[in-house]
Design a protein around this nucleic acid. Sequence first.
DNA 1: CTAATAGTGTCTGTTAGACATTATCCT
DNA 2: AGGATAATGTCTAACAGACACTATTAG
Lengths: 244, 244
Amino acid sequence: MTTGYDPRAFPPFAVTVDLALFTIRNGVFTVLLVERGGEPFAGAWALPGGFLLESEDAATAARRELAEETGVDVAAAGVHLEQLGTYSAPDRDPRMRVVSVAHVALAPDLPEPQAGTDAARARWWPVGELAPGRSDQGPQLAFDHALILADAVDRVAAKLEYSTLATRFVPPTFTLGELQAVYEAVWAVPLDRANFRRKVLSADDMVRPDGGDPRLTAGRGRPAALYRAGRATTLNPPLLRPAP
Amino acid sequence: MTTGYDPRAFPPFAVTVDLALFTIRNGVFTVLLVERGGEPFAGAWALPGGFLLESEDAATAARRELAEETGVDVAAAGVHLEQLGTYSAPDRDPRMRVVSVAHVALAPDLPEPQAGTDAARARWWPVGELAPGRSDQGPQLAFDHALILADAVDRVAAKLEYSTLATRFVPPTFTLGELQAVYEAVWAVPLDRANFRRKVLSADDMVRPDGGDPRLTAGRGRPAALYRAGRATTLNPPLLRPAP
DNA sequence: CTAATAGTGTCTGTTAGACATTATCCT
DNA sequence: AGGATAATGTCTAACAGACACTATTAG
C-alpha cells in the first residue's frame, strides 16, 4: 500500500472467512464442522465459512456466516468472536486463488445445529478426535482446515491463561465447578479445585457472585454458589497451565 | 469455504501485505515508514507493503517487499517475521476494495534504508512520536496504518513477555545490558538490572555465553560478558512487564 | 450411615522486587 | 582517586502447588 499503483491492475483474489466455533458439550471441548455438498472435497468435513461481500469487513462476514449456518446471533448470545489469522497458500483451493481470513468463536453449549442453506449437514465434533496425526478417528478435513483448526485450538488454550474467555463457554450464571471444567476440557489436564478457586476469586474482576446472597442450586452433593462473568477481559494475574 | 459454489462468481478483491518493521536505534524503539509518491495520500507516510502476487502466499510477499524496500534478506539477517492480522474495512482504500494482511518484522539495527523502486523515501521513526492521540509530532499515517501500527506495537510489547524475540533486536553477539535496553525501549519502563539478569539467565535457553570463557569487551566502566541467543523461542518462565 | 461435590485452612518451597555490595574498567 | 558500568548476594513479602479438613446435599 505504498504507491500510487492502480489496484485494479493487480491480480484479483476471492476472499473468504472461515470459522472455528467451539463450545463445551457434556464436559467435552468440541468444534462445529459442516459436511461439504459440492466439489472440491464433496462429502468431507470442513469449517463453516463463506465469501466476503463487497460491503462488509471480515468480522461482519464472520458474524453473518455464524448466523446463517448456526442460527446464532453473535451480539445477542454473548458469543466471543476474534480473528485468528489469514491463510493464503496459493494452492489451498484447487479451483482458484482464495485467501481465507480465519476466525475463532466461543459459545456456551448450543442446541444441535440447524444446517443452513449452505451446509449440507453440520455437527459438533470433539476436538480430541480431530487432533493432528490421528487418522484412527474423526474425519479428514477439507482444504487446509486441519491446519486452521490446530492453530485455533492453540489460540483458545493460550487465551484461557490470560483472559476471561472461559466465561464465554458457560451460561450467564454458572458455578466455579463448571468454570473449572472448561479449563480442564480445553487443556486436557486436571486442576486442583482449591487452588483454582483461589485464583479465580482473587483475579481482578473475572467473576462476581450472582445476586446478593450466593444462592444455591441442586446437584449431587453440596450445592454450589452461582457466579456471573465480571467486566474484566484480561486476567490479572494470569491462570497458567501446569507444566507438562 | 463450505460449499460447491464457484469462487469465480464472487466479488474480486485486491490483496496486499503491509509491514511494520521495528528496530532499536540508539536505544529508541523505531519503525520504518515510507513516503507515498502517488495518490491517494500522496506525500503522507505509510507502512511499507505491496500487492500479493498470484503465485505467493502472504508470508512470501512480506519477505519480498521487505527485501525490495529495505534491501534486507529476511532469511540471512535473522529477521523475525510474523503475521499480525488482516484489515478489511470496506472503505480502507478509497480506490477500490483492498484487503491487507499486516505483518510484524523485527530486525537488529539496520543502516538507513535505501528507498527501493516503490517508495519515494523511507526513514525510521521513533514509535513514541507516532503514538495515537499525538498530533503534536510525527506524521499522520495513510490509510488505516495508524491502527495497524498501534496493533503491531501492542503485539511486540506483549511478545517480549513470553518469547525470546528481544534477541532479534540485537546483533548476534550482545551484552545483557543491551538486551535490557531493548525491553526498556519497547516497554518504556526502567527495569532493575540485577533482577533482569537473574530472570534472563535462569530462563530456559534464552541466551548462552559466547564462546567458552565469557570474553570481555570495552565500553565505559567494567566490560560486560557477551552472549548469543539460545534455541528457545518461548520464554519459560515469562518476563512480565511491571504493573503500572 | 456413605458417596459425592462444595468450600476453607494451612504448610512449604519458589519467586519477584528492592537494594546493598563487590568487581573491573576508564580517565 | 573517582566515576561508570557489570556482576553477585541478600532480605522479605507474595504466591503457587499440595493436601488436609469441614460443610451440605442425595440416597
